[in-house]
Design a protein around this nucleic acid. Structure first.
Lengths: 159, 159
DNA sequence: TTGCTCCTCACGTCACGTGAGGTGGC
DNA sequence: TTGCTCCTCACGTCACGTGAGGTGGC
């Protein structure tokens, strides 16, 4: 139902990229459940697809698989609330809009302004991810220390 | 109430390490809330302190700060359910017990057996952490690519 | 046509948040 | 003694899980 793809990755085959998907297929391909997708749609995280008669089946595209997969990934890795995720995704829609704008403007000053906004958004997201990674590195480091100490003591025992 | 410290880190001052803490202080020092601590106690994640008269205040030690802080950290970084966390923590208590055993056994074969069990537990936890870190690295890498592309385009504009 | 997946309520659950009304301890 | 933090219910909330009963589409 939604159509715009953000990633620009070409589908494996042109034909496969066009086949409409049912909610169960979308869920499986993006690592979640139909219930979760309906819930996200209810909250406005996902597009409701404007014109679906009550009781009729939802229909999705492969671009939706990209989008839902990314939300699932961000949720799992960053542990954000859906409200936080929502604003992050809104920023991402904003970026898509900026790219659109960029492709239509010639003025170097304008192009520069748009690109700098894009950079700001990406930098912010990157800082979030790097912060998490630092914490995980710290934890991994501590575990590696423990591991090393046990290995040394194992080396001391005979056998 | 609980006493055994796992980490072996010396407190900043001996006196400060002995002062009993109230639930609000414990919560603040370990980055959570009193309600969460009571809930974890209810579930058995934290020791109930055996003998507290109904309505009387809970009392904690600085060793409890270590324990609660670690649970908070694992919850935030690994995104586990409290049930998963619970078994992970039980494994950790098992490790404390193994270390105890180790300090009392002389037989090299026995010591070796114990150390290998310790190593197994640590390796398992490390794999969990490394898996998460790999995923975050992947995400960070993708964002860095985007960032680089925007930078290149910024370099192309005049100004 | 038969089976499957889908649909919409609606109640259940997990991990707490948030008062309500009352008591404890420096 | 006054204020704070604490106590125990108990209901609310977020992000879904899980049927119940019914319809849609290959």
């Amino acid at each position: 139902v939604t159509t715009a793809s953000d990633s620009g990755a070409a589908p494996a085959t042109a034909a496969a990229g066009d086949k409409p998907l049912r909610i169960g297929e979308l869920a499986e391909l993006s690592g979640t459940t139909p219930r979760t997708i309906r819930y996200w749609e209810e909250l406005g995280l996902l597009d409701a697809g404007s014109d679906r008669a009550e009781g009729k089946h939802r229909s999705y595209s492969h671009a939706d698989v990209e989008r839902v997969s990314e939300i699932v990934r961000l949720r799992n890795l960053l542990g954000l609330s859906l409200e936080e995720l929502s604003s992050l995704l809104e920023a991402e829609r904003g970026r898509a809009h900026l790219r659109e704008e960029l492709s239509h403007t010639e003025s170097p000053a304008e192009r520069r302004r748009i690109l700098e906004q894009l950079r700001g958004h990406i930098d912010a997201q990157l800082e979030l991810v790097r912060g998490r990674r630092r914490e995980l590195d710290q934890l991994a480091g501590e575990l590696e220390d423990k591991q090393r100490r046990v290995r040394e003591r194992l080396g001391e025992t005979t056998g």
